[in-house]
Design a protein around this nucleic acid. Structure first.
Lengths: 78, 78
DNA sequence: ACTAATTGTCAAGTATATTTTACAAATTTT
DNA sequence: AAAATTTGTAAAATATACTTGACAATTAGT
């Protein structure tokens, strides 16, 4: 997939470790790591939890970062 | 959980049936229905697909609509 | 009122998100 | 440069998202 750098940045802003974020969000450290690594496809419930802890919106943390197919680098949506 | 009315509305705006949306998004009709019904917790990948087809953002379709716990009616976030 | 289409729901199965344990890189601290 | 913390990765087990098939309830069309 594609690595989620937005989370890494937001985490850095809050000075949290992956382990800390994982705990705050109620999920295993490996799961958090895998998400940042882009190795999968979390549940929206988990995404919301991450957003709440990091103080970001879904669009900020989970929009772009993957879904091939569209192929052109257009950043338009809606 | 809580019914997702935003999707129902957005679907109406596009004059699409649940079946049509399900097909457009590559998922079964029952799954789309269950999501509108709030009976679960889709994958973010699926949420993105729905947003693309309906021309809405993640925040517009998938933010509020559940997560108990907070209990007060405060709509603040971030 | 009748018919057809759409929506709500259930049960059993399959696919995949998430956990646990465990270890090797890499980074930070002393 | 050694020790300690953090991060990347893997395999096996468990929980849950999603499918398929089938049927009742509701809504829209005639």
């Amino acid at each position: 997939m594609a690595r989620n750098i937005a989370i890494k940045v937001a985490r850095a802003e809050k000075d949290m470790t992956q382990t800390a974020l994982a705990k705050a969000v109620g999920v295993s450290r490996q799961t958090m790591n895998a998400i940042e690594q882009g190795d999968y496809n979390p549940t929206i419930k988990l995404c919301r939890a991450i957003c709440r802890v990091l103080g970001k919106t879904l669009d900020e943390l989970f929009w772009i970062d993957e879904e091939p197919g569209s192929s052109d680098g257009n950043s338009e949506r809606r």
